[in-house]
Design a protein around this nucleic acid. Sequence first.
DNA 1: AGATAAAGATTAGCTTGCTAATGAAATGGG
DNA 2: CCCATTTCATTAGCAAGCTAATCTTTATCT
Lengths: 147, 147
Amino acid sequence: MEQRRELTRVMLRLVRGMRAIFNTQAQEMGLTYARAHMILAVSRAEGLSQTCLAEVLDIETPSLNRTLDGLEKLGFLERRPDPNDKRVRQVFLTDHARENADQIESFTNDLRARVYHGIDAQALDAALNVLHAMDKNLDEMRHPCPK
Amino acid sequence: MEQRRELTRVMLRLVRGMRAIFNTQAQEMGLTYARAHMILAVSRAEGLSQTCLAEVLDIETPSLNRTLDGLEKLGFLERRPDPNDKRVRQVFLTDHARENADQIESFTNDLRARVYHGIDAQALDAALNVLHAMDKNLDEMRHPCPK
DNA sequence: AGATAAAGATTAGCTTGCTAATGAAATGGG
DNA sequence: CCCATTTCATTAGCAAGCTAATCTTTATCT
């Protein structure tokens, strides 16, 4: 019971903390957490529609849209109309962003290594199981009767 | 490696998801996640300064301040000057909020029970250890040389 | 084919976290 | 005792998530 409260609490703190650390690193190249991740996602699959990209990043399209606006304004990416469907705009990196992608990837890996330092795979797996179970519970709370 | 990425990902999703579920419940009484938690924190220790309250809730004072503003405007609490120190303003619930506190406590417990349903104490403990280790790593990343 | 429905992007506006900067009050050292 | 520092609250402004609503285009159904 008290453990449950504490798990929630530490999760909240971790998410904020990780974002903050990431931000301080990313701002050296004029980026933020959300923006850097966006660049990585796009670099892994250029030309996706915004809906697809939102699914990949696990966020809603308006959230994505704003991040995209920012990055476009900063010259990191561009949206081009899809010739096959006038509704969609495909997302591409600029050359400038493509140059940075490796660097972002690399410091992301570095930060991840440091955050997870000293945690063995077995423990990690156990934690993952717990969080997945919680995630499943949440899903069922959202969709009460899937029949 | 892939597990690490996934753990981060699911944590992000969980935090957003829990907040969302909580919000839909809380909005029936005109509240939100942050506001409901604030009411609980104040009800557990009325008369704290805002700095103390921020520490209890693990957020920064400007974040707290805004939530407090909202709740004060809605008539859930009030800030009263501390007679012993003209800098501080102590935080108290209104009678109205005090009536709601039990209800908030109760549906918070209910939601927590559902989110953590089916997860045994041992697994929970293992997960908690992992997250605490990460939290510690983060701390060390923030304070490189504590001597 | 034409009407209706669905899907993609966008806008508007809310929430709640943050940092940086400011002003007022208290504290402490010389 | 006074000046410098620290502490508390607050303001201003950014970031990034969300829902609801709108507009355009495409798909579907009769």
